[in-house]
């Protein structure tokens, strides 16, 4: 009797207590995960606030002139972002010019041409290229590529184009080895795997039936790729390219080594220049004075703004693609 009463008294409340406990721990866990998710957003907002706060001094001193001035003089404390913005945009654009066709070429090779046993090793090799840290590209460019380029390739290009209008201005000046052109080439190698990886994934979402139908009426591989696969995968390919562009715009170490860090706008691509990220990396720790530091942070704010727009556009395009291919994660 005593036993019974005991067990009855214990069991009933325990059951309810257990349910309550489950409910509480469930709610706690949910709040935990939600907090972690919101922390991601908080970091993003924090970055924006920190950048605006840090660049306030420079922006209030120079106003909008900061964007259009090409003076960068730490001695007189006059700073303008134009050369850095110009360098960033030009190197990234050139890098895209090289990397997009080559990256798509690799993707086509991997999806259509590559013999099956080689598919994995070659795909992996290209993806490993994406894993190599950017500082490695930097010292490789600085110690190996730039000297070789300077001695064996650059003089030839300068001579060959010396009398052709427009081109002679783009490729003139002494062969330094380092400069905007070198930086663009290194950048293009860096972003190549991003483009080919996304493009390959998108190509694989193309229904085989479409391709088979095209082959069936006698199309060549080229015609199938150009008329069927590329149009179908267009937004995904553009999204992947934008993603790579975002990388290129913000890439720091690889560029810093080989761009020459000169705040000048020079129409020759062989001339030393600078980019936003290279300026920050090179000068930040040595910057004396609040205005100098603030100007560098303002450069960072501009970079964040540009990459945000590019990356947001990339996401919208890839999301659209994802939805069409039935939620496959790209």
């Amino acid at each position: 009797m005593v036993d019974f009463a005991l067990s009855e008294n214990i069991v009933a409340p325990t059951r309810a207590a257990a349910l309550r406990r489950f409910g509480r721990s469930d709610a706690r866990f949910r709040v935990f995960t939600l907090a972690a998710a919101l922390l991601v957003v908080a970091i993003f907002i924090g970055i924006m606030i920190a950048l605006i706060q840090g660049s306030w001094l420079a922006l209030s001193t120079f106003g909008l002139g900061f964007l259009t001035s090409s003076v960068w003089n730490p001695v007189t404390e006059k700073f303008g972002a134009l050369p850095a913005i110009y360098g960033t945009v030009v190197t990234s654009a050139l890098a895209m010019l090289v990397a997009v066709p080559v990256g798509i070429g690799i993707a086509i090779f991997l999806t259509e041409l590559c013999p099956r046993p080689l598919k994995r090793p070659i795909g992996t090799a290209i993806e490993l290229l994406a894993g190599i840290p950017s500082i490695i590209y930097g010292i490789w460019g600085f110690f190996i590529f730039a000297p070789y380029f300077q001695q064996h390739i650059q003089p030839g290009i300068i001579d060959a184009l010396a009398n052709i209008p427009v081109l002679q201005d783009l490729f003139e000046g002494p062969p330094y080895g380092i400069g905007m052109f070198t930086a663009s080439l290194i950048l293009s190698i860096m972003i190549l795997p991003f483009i080919s990886a996304v493009t390959r994934d998108v190509f694989e979402t193309v229904p085989p039936m479409l391709k088979e139908a095209a082959y069936g009426i006698g199309s060549t591989t080229w015609e199938v790729m150009w008329r069927i696969v590329l149009p179908f995968a267009r937004s995904g390919v553009v999204g992947g390219a934008m993603l790579a562009l975002g990388r290129a715009l913000g890439e720091t170490m690889a560029v810093t080594f080989v761009i020459g860090n000169a705040h000048h706008i020079n129409e020759s691509l062989f001339a030393p220049a600078t980019t936003i990220s290279a300026s920050i990396a090179n000068e930040f720790t040595e910057a004396l004075g609040d205005l100098y530091v603030s100007s560098l942070i303002a450069l960072g704010l501009i970079l964040f703004g540009i990459t945000f727009i590019v990356l947001a556009a990339a996401q919208l395009m890839l999301r659209g693609m994802e939805r069409r291919s039935g939620g496959k994660s790209l």
Binding site: V40, I43, F44, G46, I47, A50, L51, G54, L243, G246, R247, L249, G250, E251, T252, S277, I280, A281, I297, G300, L303, F304, T307, F308, L311, A312, A314, Q315
Partner: peptide, 13 residues
């Protein structure tokens, strides 16, 4: 966005 944001920006932050 954070995944692809320039890492130097994280440094500034």
């Amino acid at each position: 966005i954070l995944l692809s944001a320039p890492s130097i920006i994280i440094g500034l932050f």
